[in-house]
Design a protein around this nucleic acid. Structure first.
Lengths: 333, 333
DNA sequence: CGCAAGACTGAAAACGCTTTCATATCAAAG
DNA sequence: CTTTGATATGAAAGCGTTTTCAGTCTTGCG
């Protein structure tokens, strides 16, 4: 009762040609007489022949699939990038093997290895904690790897991002311009390069430009979760902050709702600005002002870059920086 | 400069055994003398040998990868299922090929075909519009297919869901019990089975049980988007509705915010209850009451079911129904 | 000490395709 | 006609594993 698979050999026999010829017509090789092509095509249709991609992969050493490592699909930010990645991948006839890493170094290394074992033609990596071990695996990979919406201190790999330092600096300057002096910096784990090495730098720069002393009492390191943000209210007010820059939208929603629930008026007595411009910013009330990022495009461009790399095309610039913006909504004055 | 790949043959030579033996130790076959195993393992380690999964797949006819068709990763509901799927998949050593379908029949058929060409061991399908063509492809597949959080009128495939009819009926009854007589039914496209054949049925049942006449002026068919929901306010009030059941959280958030923005007080003068219990319900103000679904588990159970099917284990029940609940938050009295 | 029954191991045949290389065909040119 | 340079085609060698089948060794035991 097992369904019988029809192979290239069956087609060759039925069409009275060699496998080589069948292979040629399947792959659109022009060196086939039109009459022959027609005959083969008919048989293919009649037998409902579908080439086995695994065999093809083994013979050609190309699988037309790329691996995508994502911290968590459930996170709006990364999901948006993933969507961009998949669309472009599909456009170039690639498929995506998607795996959640939870930004867990061990899991990332393991996943990377199974992707390589599966002979993916390329890899897109999302995650901001590029450990030395990870970097080691990257080097050992013969498939090109590009980072999307993720930074590595050492810039060891091609990547596409926005200029986080400048974006955060501008966001914070905006807060300063509104008269705030004690501005909280609420971020995810500080061992992520994007937090300790980019956002924080932007924050400090804005302060310095405005001659405001840096005060580490205003630095709040926590998880990227709604609950964590919500729980921050007492500490925030205790520290005397009157505004906050937040590194993640869900976290920011938590911060804002936490404040509101404690009767701290946003934006009147406390301003909040967030980082990722996901849908969330529009759903909450007040709507959140945010740094804007071309989320979909970051993924799309990363995938496009990867196709070039997989094709051995020369690319002029390996680390691409997309433009950001600032969107004023209702959580800032 | 191309990195050299080491094959099973290299290991065999270095260890002075046959490929067969190497294969055995790699696959944990017990029929290998401990001393031999040790020797081979050492060589594997020394040469840093990693089995080629593609070759393996060709020889064994198993790829340890499953295809996942999802309407849109960017949708919280499906993303949550996807996370459950991936976790269980990883637990059973499978990888996921993820593709967005936009619930577009043509794209779905095409994607299904490329998944089959890639010899996936199984497929998880999400999407509520199972067309005859699609059903045809399902049948032709030799890899088992299970539907997750998705229904097919004809129950042609194994699936895991909740009892949508009962859940919606209960939700609507709740609204009726609060004294509402004109309850709007706001749903996504009616050509999706889940809407026209399940949710609507539950809605009608609740009305009937309460002796309320069905009025199709209260049926609102629209897109699953925030904007669409927001735009619904005028129509909703014009129809005289005092409450609404909504088939999607993002849509519901739109409906609710639309009402609020038009100074219709939720829940005091208009109650809203939604369907999917995603994170969103907690982010908006007022928080939305919702049917609760074990989102992660729907995905997880679907994947688990698939592993059994792929293993040819006998499963007692092909269509599993998980429990639902009703979570009262602040958008209902 | 002889022998059957495991326990191990290796040779070689798949798996279903791509690709190289050689050969065959053919039209145009001489 | 013969030659020549494309143009078409086929044979066969991989691609890197798994798996079957047939041994070859070891044991335990009478």
């Amino acid at each position: 009762m097992e369904k019988q698979t029809v192979t290239i050999y069956d087609v060759a026999r039925e069409a009275a040609v060699s496998m080589a010829t069948v292979s040629r017509v399947v792959n659109g090789n022009p060196n086939v007489k039109p009459a022959t092509r027609k005959k083969v095509l008919e048989v293919i249709d009649r037998l409902d022949y579908r080439p086995n991609a695994v065999a093809r992969g083994l013979a050609s050493k190309k699988t037309t699939t790329v691996g995508v490592i994502i911290p968590d699909v459930t996170n709006e930010y990364f999901a948006s990038l993933a969507r961009g990645i998949d669309d472009i991948a599909m456009m170039y006839k690639y498929n995506i093997i998607l795996t959640n890493s939870d930004e867990n170094g061990g899991k990332e290394v393991q996943v990377l290895n199974t992707l390589m074992a599966k002979q993916v033609d390329g890899i897109i990596f999302m995650g901001n904690r590029v450990t030395p071990e990870l970097r080691e695996e990257f080097k050992r990979s013969k498939a090109p790897i590009v980072l999307a919406g993720s930074v590595d201190d050492e810039k060891s790999q091609p990547s596409v991002n926005i200029d986080y330092v400048a974006a955060v600096a501008e966001a914070v300057k905006n807060l300063i311009d509104h008269g705030n002096q004690k501005i909280a910096f609420v971020s995810g784990p500080m061992d992520e390069a994007i937090n300790h090495d980019y956002r924080l730098k932007g924050y400090k720069k804005a302060l310095k430009d405005a001659n405001i002393a840096f005060d580490d009492k205003l630095i709040f390191e926590t998880d990227y979760t709604y609950k964590a943000g919500q729980a921050l209210e007492p500490a925030l007010t205790a520290a005397g902050a009157t505004a906050a820059f937040v590194g993640d939208d869900e976290l920011a929603a938590g911060v804002m709702n936490g404040l509101t629930d404690a009767n701290v008026a946003v934006p009147d007595t406390f301003e909040v600005i967030t980082s990722n411009d996901t849908k969330l910013t529009e759903l909450v009330r007040p709507k959140m002002s945010s740094i804007t990022q071309p989320l979909y495009d970051i993924g799309a461009v990363a995938m496009r870059l990867l196709t070039k790399l997989m094709n051995n095309e020369t690319v002029d610039e390996n680390t691409v920086i997309l433009p950001y913006g600032l969107m004023k909504r209702s959580s800032t004055k």
